[in-house]
């Protein structure tokens, strides 16, 4: 009796999860299929073809935009990881008041609505230079990413065994050596996850980008948004192919992550 009830419960639960997952993936799967159809508009006939994929890779404009997007993400993530890691270490060794103040300030961009951050930065740059440049764009992305680097690194500092640093100094290491050979390795996992998080935040961003970018510069987000708003018939099929590729890359990354974490689990057993 109990088993039967449990079986029904499991069945209902499984069906519910399946329905929600289906709804979540339906739009993406639709694009995946449509990207292999020669039709410009989904549902308007068409035959199986790689046309859009070929055109996508031939489009210098779209390839340039992709390169811009990735380059910006790498620059922003690298700078914010350095800035944020230094900040985290500094905050960790500061006195209580400074540390509380800086950690509070660090939360402002996290809790704040992104559009308010974006507008605030745009006003600043308008007041100072009257124009937006690549510099203002990078600053925008740093404001977006750096707080999350701190949030990833500070817990690792707290878990760290502080005696090791002192031991290194006692054994003759200079403070700089001790920092790079003892502290940094112990917080490396936090630094890496801060970096990865920064990459995803930067790649995904639309609002801050559109408020801080120079007029002629486009990232993936701003390009796709404008193409969709203008219902550009030449761009939409390319975007389908592009989405399909990005989605497949994402699946590969996730599978690698899952395999890696299940291996770790087995090792720890």
């Amino acid at each position: 009796m109990v088993n039967k009830r449990q079986a029904i419960k499991n069945g209902v639960s499984g069906v519910y999860l399946a329905i929600i997952l289906l709804l979540i993936y339906a739009p993406i799967l639709l694009l995946l299929f449509a990207s292999f159809s020669s039709a410009r508009i989904i549902g308007e006939g068409g035959t199986f073809s790689f046309e859009w994929y070929i055109r996508l890779f031939q489009s210098e404009r779209v390839m340039g935009i992709l390169l811009n997007t990735v380059l910006l993400a790498v620059i922003a993530a690298t700078l914010s990881t350095v800035l944020g890691t230094m900040g985290a270490i500094g905050i960790f060794y500061s006195n209580k008041r400074t540390s509380a103040l800086l950690q509070g300030a660090n939360q402002i961009p996290v809790v704040n609505a992104e559009i308010v951050t974006a507008l605030a930065l745009a006003i600043l740059f308008a007041a100072v230079t009257l124009q937006r440049t690549y510099f203002s764009l990078v600053v925008g992305h740093l404001v977006l990413c750096t707080p999350f680097v701190l949030i990833s690194v500070i817990p690792k500092l707290k878990q760290m065994d502080n005696n090791l640093y002192e031991a290194a100094l006692d054994l003759g290491a200079s403070p700089t050596q001790a920092l790079f050979r003892v502290v940094i390795p112990q917080i490396a996992s936090g630094i890496v996850s801060g970096f990865m998080l920064s990459i995803t935040l930067s790649l995904d961003d639309y609002i801050i980008t559109s408020f801080t970018k120079p007029a002629t510069f486009d990232t993936l987000s701003t390009y796709v948004y404008n193409a969709v708003k203008n219902e550009s018939k030449s761009d939409l099929p390319l975007i389908r192919a592009l989405s399909a590729i990005v989605f497949l890359i994402m699946i590969i990354v996730v599978v690698v992550l899952i395999v890696r974490s299940s291996r770790k689990e087995e090792q720890s057993r």
């Binding site: 979540i24 995803t200 969709v228």
Partner: peptide, 20 residues
């Protein structure tokens, strides 16, 4: 992971897919 994976797809692309 399956439930949060869509978050990694650029959100403008995701919304465009939903639009189609």
């Amino acid at each position: 992971m399956l439930f949060i994976m869509p978050m990694w797809l650029n959100f403008v692309l995701r919304i465009t897919a939903l639009r189609e």
